[in-house]
Design a protein around this nucleic acid. Structure first.
Length: 637
RNA sequence: GGUUUCAUAGCUCAGUUGGAUAGAGCAACUGCCUUCUAAGCAGUAGGUCAUUGGUUCGAAUCCAAUUGGAAUCACCA
């Protein structure tokens, strides 16, 4: 809570106690809308109702009490219906401004003595990163920074999905068609090379699928096992039934993908992939060698991308190490009576009361399912770091899974269970539908960055503010602007909203966009360069007698002072969007100030010094709030 | 079918625990560069907050129903 808010609340309580003899009521203040005078507003409707008085009268009485008894705090009031607006003394604003400038670390909230792990983006190692991963990475990275600024100790963890049938698909395709190609020999990034073979696998799979599907079309089910035949028949009937029915398109698609799921396991390719997975699990030497080699290439590619994106991790977990974890927890759950066993030995948890149904936690043959290993990994994380909170940055398609996981851990009475949070975000789709790596219709992360850098270069050349920059400096700047634009575009939206990405028009460089914010940062730097050149004193003493803040100055100052509140709000909501909006508000506010108030031709020396000090602090605040989004702030652009 | 979630300007989105005349950006139109960076500033126009009902001093916000969209409901991960 801010200093002024606190003071005002005490003053208003005092007024209410004196005027109406009521004690201990909560005073809620809200920011004054900009079309009215003042900065803080107290709404009197509720109080007036309790007193059975006119809200406007109550506002008048309280307002006048403050004017008389707290003249050094409140210098003006305005009452509109039940809204009591306060104008706070100029001196207080200036004092706060001076205080915050002298503060060692103005953007660091006090420590909470709590450790939190943020897990992202946890990619599969069978394909390069795409735009969806970028949203995940930027969210995870920014939330980590925000939590750290709000006083948490943060551990950034990446749980790499490095094993499983999908990995074997790439491996198999490479083995069959790769001809010992390497990233060096093909001259492409390792992750892109592997992705190429993942797509190749799917392509060949589709070809192998055709004869099976043709037979099914002819109602010939003899290829399939006795167990599968009735299922296939039923699905075929459903497909027939919903075929030209637009309303049942969903069911049609469900049936189709269900059919494909069963049938594709009959193809030689899928059988080979399954065999490969079994070999891998039995530690077959050749398989492991190939796996190590190919994953190595992928990691090299990922590392390069992470570096280009400006993100780092504190801890890598690998699923190949963790996929067998969790079985001991199943045993424990059975003993505690949290789980139950069916006749076929499979183990389940009853989450019907939580509206999550019955859920399998271990197969009848004793092998793990998805949740099993996630239970184990959760324990491992706690064992490794003693974390009180844990944030999982995962797409909204896994909401149900996360609910099951968290609820299960709660029932197992894990000490960390209450601190689990699923930071869920909406999928990014293209105008023609969902991105699918296996079909190759994705916006590649590396391509995206290169594209945006090009756009940044074009704009920079157009404006021509950096003619004195060396080629290296220019390259760096293009990267900062291009990458900043993408990060801001993905972070300014509410995470839970789905994005339909239109390549031609999506990422903005003007208006509510990172370059505009960066541009205003560059402007503040330009002012500072000139102020230093002219050796102008803008220390606290130099503007102490500055009496009347211009409206633009006042608005900007109020915004700048709210940084700690904004950080706390963003951290509580796990929402970088709060800070994206805040950065934009500052940039807009500074831009207005910049055009309305002349700095070096200011009316008085006090005004000049104050405006330079204000520019200086705007620079720091913008830089910090952009940094919390993972966006760099150039000195010139 | 069950559960969850979403619907705000032509487009993309903000909108705090219910508060003042619902706000930005883009696109359109009008002004403003001899002066600190015009990636800008000022202005005009654009709204049945999906629909209906309820709760109350007051509803985009809370509740119910309806309509339309999305996700999910695998012994896949």
């Amino acid at each position: 809570m801010s200093y002024i808010e606190n003071k005002l609340q005490i003053a208003i309580s005092q007024a209410i106690q004196f005027l109406y003899q009521i004690e201990n009521i909560e005073i809620i203040l809200q920011p004054t809308r900009k079309e009215f005078k003042g900065s803080h507003t107290f709404v009197t409707f509720n109080l007036a109702k309790n007193l059975q008085k006119n809200p406007e009268l109550v506002g008048n009485e309280i307002g006048n009490y403050l004017l008389q008894n707290y003249a050094d705090l409140v210098t003006g009031i305005q009452i509109v219906k039940g809204f009591l607006n306060f104008k706070i003394a100029n001196k207080i604003w200036l004092q706060l401004f001076t205080d915050v400038q002298n503060k060692e670390n103005f953007a660091q909230n006090p420590t909470k003595n709590m450790r939190v792990m943020v897990e992202y983006p946890s990619p599969n190692t069978n394909k390069p990163l795409h735009l969806g991963h970028l949203r995940n990475i930027f969210l995870g990275d920014s939330v980590s920074r925000i939590l750290a600024a709000d006083g948490y100790e943060v551990i950034k963890a990446n749980l790499v999905n490095d094993r499983g049938i999908h990995i074997c698909k790439s491996m198999l395709a490479y083995q069959k068609f790769g001809q010992n190609e390497t990233p060096q020999s093909a001259n492409i990034k390792g992750d892109h090379l592997i992705g190429k073979y993942y797509v190749a696998f799917e392509k060949h799979l589709r070809i192998e699928l055709e004869p099976f599907m043709a037979k099914i079309d002819n109602k010939d089910f003899t290829d399939f096992s006795a167990e599968h035949q009735p299922k296939i028949k039923a699905l075929t009937e459903q497909i027939e039934k919903f075929k030209d029915n637009r309303k049942e398109e969903k069911k049609y698609n469900d049936a189709k993908s269900g059919l494909k799921q069963i049938v594709q396991n009959y193809t030689p390719l899928m059988r080979e992939a399954q065999e490969m997975l079994q070999k891998w699990e039995k530690n077959d030497e050749n398989t492991k060698q190939l796996w190590t080699k190919m994953n190595g290439w992928v990691y090299e590619g990922f590392d390069e991308t992470y570096k280009n994106l400006g993100v780092t991790f504190d801890k890598f977990y690998y699923e190949s190490d963790t996929y067998l974890l969790g079985k001991n927890i199943v045993e424990e759950g059975l003993q505690k009576g949290v789980f139950y066993q069916k006749e076929d030995k499979s183990v389940w948890i009853d989450l019907v009361k939580e509206k999550l149904d019955h859920k399998l936690v271990l197969r009848g043959d004793g092998t793990s399912v998805y949740v099993t290993q996630d239970l184990g990994t959760a324990d491992l994380k706690y064992k490794d770091f003693k974390i009180q909170k844990s944030v999982y940055v995962i797409g909204d398609e896994q909401e149900y899974h996360c609910q099951v996981l968290f609820k299960t851990l709660e029932k197992l009475e894990r000490p960390y269970a209450k601190g689990l949070y699923h930071l869920s975000y909406g999928m990014i789709e293209l105008p023609e539908g969902r991105m699918k790596s296996r079909d190759g219709n994705v916006i590649d992360a590396d391509d995206m960055i290169v594209e945006m850098k090009k756009v940044a270069q074009l704009k920079c050349e157009e404006f021509g503010h950096i003619k004195d920059y060396s080629d290296v400096e220019k390259e760096k700047l293009y990267g900062q602007i291009g990458l900043g634009a993408v990060k801001y575009y993905l972070l300014k939206l509410d995470p839970k909203k789905k994005i339909i990405f239109k390549p031609e028009e999506s990422v903005e460089f003007v208006g509510d966009a990172a370059p505009f914010i960066q541009y205003n940062h560059a402007r503040t730097c330009s002012i500072m360069r000139k102020a230093n050149e002219l050796k102008i004193d803008f220390s606290a003493n130099s503007y102490q007698n500055y009496e009347h803040l211009h409206e633009a100055e006042q608005n900007l100052l109020e915004l700048l002072l709210s940084l700690p509140t904004q950080i706390a709000e963003a951290a509580t909501a796990y929402s970088p969007a709060v800070l994206a909006q805040y950065s934009y508000e500052i940039a807009k506010s500074y831009s207005k100030f910049f055009t309305e108030c002349s700095i070096f031709q200011a009316e008085t020396e006090h005004a000049k010094s104050f405006r330079i000090a204000l520019s200086s602090f705007t620079q720091k605040t913008l830089k910090k709030s952009l940094a919390l989004l993972g966006i760099e702030a150039p000195q010139k652009m």
